[in-house]
């Protein structure tokens, strides 16, 4: 990137933006943003299957000098009732934070709290 950034971008992405994408476009968008050094908070995260695919794509992108992978943390998918499933309502992913592993570190994750830290001094790399 040509643009020289002085801080770390931290972007909150609405679910409407992501819902406008296909699953493939969504993963491409996320991985590109994260590779460019941005931390994303997704209002509505990824399904477990999408997360698995994102990990697979991340592994292909790791180049060891500029991109060592991602850090990701989200709440478990919302459980749906039997009746909802009968009507074809699938489990909905919830809020998720994703960032480049050299900038974002997961401290602790529980059902009610996802604690992260941003690693200082790397934003202007």
């Amino acid at each position: 990137m040509i643009k020289k950034e002085t801080g770390i971008s931290f972007n909150l992405v609405s679910r409407y933006k992501l819902n406008g994408f296909s699953s493939k476009e969504k993963l491409e968008y996320i991985l590109k943003e994260v590779k460019d050094g941005r931390i994303l908070v997704l209002e509505q995260g990824l399904t477990a299957t999408e997360q698995t695919t994102l990990i697979e794509h991340t592994m292909k992108e790791i180049d060891h000098d500029t991109f060592i992978g991602i850090e990701m943390g989200g709440y478990g998918e919302e459980k749906t009732s039997f009746v909802q499933r009968v009507f074809g309502i699938i489990r909905k992913p919830r809020m998720t934070v994703i960032g480049p592993a050299h900038l974002l570190k997961m401290v602790h994750k529980s059902n009610d709290m996802i604690e992260t830290t941003i690693i200082p001094g790397r934003g202007t790399k």
């Binding site: 399904t47 477990a48 299957t49 997360q51 698995t52 990990i55 990701m72 943390g73 989200g74 478990g76 998918e77 997961m106 602790h108 994750k109 529980s110």
Partner: peptide, 17 residues
């Protein structure tokens, strides 16, 4: 170690699906 990591959650979610 802390078991509630994203990798564990992702693997479990994938298999449950």
């Amino acid at each position: 170690q802390d078991p509630f990591t994203q990798v564990n959650v992702t693997i479990i979610g994938n298999l449950e699906a």
